[in-house]
Amino acid sequence: MNIDNLKSQMRKGMLEFCVLLLLRNRDAYASEIIASMKEAHLIVMEGTLYPLLTRLKNDGLLAYRWEESPSGPPRKYYSITPLGLQFLDQLKASWDEICHTVNHILLPSQTPPPINIDEE
């Protein structure tokens, strides 16, 4: 059992979830998303994000539009679709469940309430 492999698998499962979360309240272009995700130590390789965004877009969870930028060529702004929001709700529910379970095992004495991401 390779610990790095396991760790990266855990992270991978969360990537889509986090991208959707980031785009939930505001639209952003790829570099902004990258900056946030790097800040949160979610991704190491920036290139990882692009296949992810394209796939989410092709699955109808994200949409994009071109917007002029103050410098350079137009930027591709991503926004979440209604389907994406639905998807996000399901993911969040499942995330809460996972957190609850893990915390329950981790700290058997004091079961914390599920983390409410909405108020983060």
Binding site: S8, K12, L15, V44, M45, G47, T48, Y50, P51, L52
Partner: peptide
């Protein structure tokens, strides 16, 4: 950005 195999491996 990561090499192609690293990117696909992550995603």
């Amino acid at each position: 950005m990561g090499r192609p195999e690293q990117i696909t491996d992550e995603v």
